[in-house]
């Protein structure tokens, strides 16, 4: 039987120090990693690097408000986030649709981001909130926007020695905000397509509108261009404006056929949800 070298250090400082010395597989809740690394029955999971456990680190489990921003520790579990009074309600709507209670007790927000699945359930909302990711290493720290941090399926802009410590959620003012997850069942399911949208009105006109789509491309799809163009449009929107936005996303959304659904379904549903959002208030 193969053995797996692993660390479970007492503090964030020691963890960061060890990461500066050795390339490790960082593991928070393990709800994705243990599936990705599992062997057939009766054989141990396979890791080609030592495993660094971080799920116990108190430094990564805080939720605080700093000025208008919400700081969420990377190792807060979905359940902890769900139960916290400062978390915006729409995130709770999304988190309630993740897996099932047992997974929500283990899985973490930082883990959902670093796993960088195109279908990650928290990602569309994080995108439209303009979430920032704080990373630390022995050399210092940096903050990066989520859209720059996630590079592709399972690829993020994290250096070997870096650790994601917190997610910064700026306040978002909106008159309407929605999250929709479409899957083959209502629990323990991976999204076929997901959608997040928000809109703020100013004197009968669009003050700000944001949209993001999950599971329809290698990363979450959002367009600042089209959002900019919508600013100042009279609301309810002119049907031509709605058609224009829908046509725009029709061009940039490029989903695939797989064992969960079809490209045609994903695209049609994404556009239907978008249109419905634009036409309803």
């Amino acid at each position: 039987m193969g053995t797996v070298l692993s660390y479970r250090l007492a503090s964030l400082e020691e963890t960061i120090a060890q990461l500066s010395r050795e390339d490790c597989q960082i593991m928070a809740g393990g709800t994705d990693l243990m599936v990705q690394h599992k062997s057939p029955m009766g054989a141990p999971a396979r890791f080609d690097k030592p495993v660094m456990f971080i799920d116990h680190l108190k430094e990564l489990k805080q939720i605080d408000q700093v000025n208008q921003d919400l700081h969420i520790g990377a190792c807060c579990t979905y359940t902890e986030i769900l139960e916290h009074p400062l978390i915006p309600n729409i995130f709770k709507v999304a988190i309630k649709q993740i897996a099932a209670p047992a997974i929500r007790n283990r899985g973490t927000l930082g883990g959902n981001i670093c796993n960088a699945s195109p279908a990650g359930d928290t990602l569309p909302l994080l995108y439209i909130f303009n979430a920032q990711i704080r990373l630390r290493s022995s050399k210092g720290e940096r903050v990066v926007g989520i859209q720059d941090f996630i590079l592709g399926p399972r690829r993020v802009d994290r250096l070997r020695e870096e650790i994601l410590t917190e997610i910064i959620l700026p306040e978002m003012l909106a008159d309407r905000i929605v999250f929709e997850k479409v899957a083959n069942r209502r629990a323990d399911a991976i999204a076929k397509i997901s959608f997040a949208g928000s809109m703020r009105l100013e004197g009968g006109r669009v003050g700000e509108a944001r949209f993001a789509f999950g599971a329809v491309g290698p990363t979450i799809v959002r367009s600042l261009d089209i959002e900019q163009k919508l600013k100042g449009e009279a609301f309810p929107l002119d049907p031509k404006v709605v058609d224009g936005v829908v046509a725009y996303f029709d061009r940039i959304i490029t989903p695939i056929d797989d064992h969960r659904s079809t490209a045609a379904y994903r695209k049609t549903v994404a556009l239907r949800l978008l249109r419905h959002f634009l036409e309803t208030m």
Binding site: N184, R185, A187, D188, A189, H259, R260
Partner: peptide, 27 residues
């Protein structure tokens, strides 16, 4: 209306319970 299993060139495509999608208590 839920449980969908497909075979492509002789190979079953859904190899996990979540991909096959039998109902949970939520459904």
């Amino acid at each position: 209306f839920m449980e969908k299993m497909t075979s492509q060139l002789g190979k079953i495509q859904q190899k996990t319970i979540s991909d096959y999608g039998p109902p949970t208590a939520m459904d």
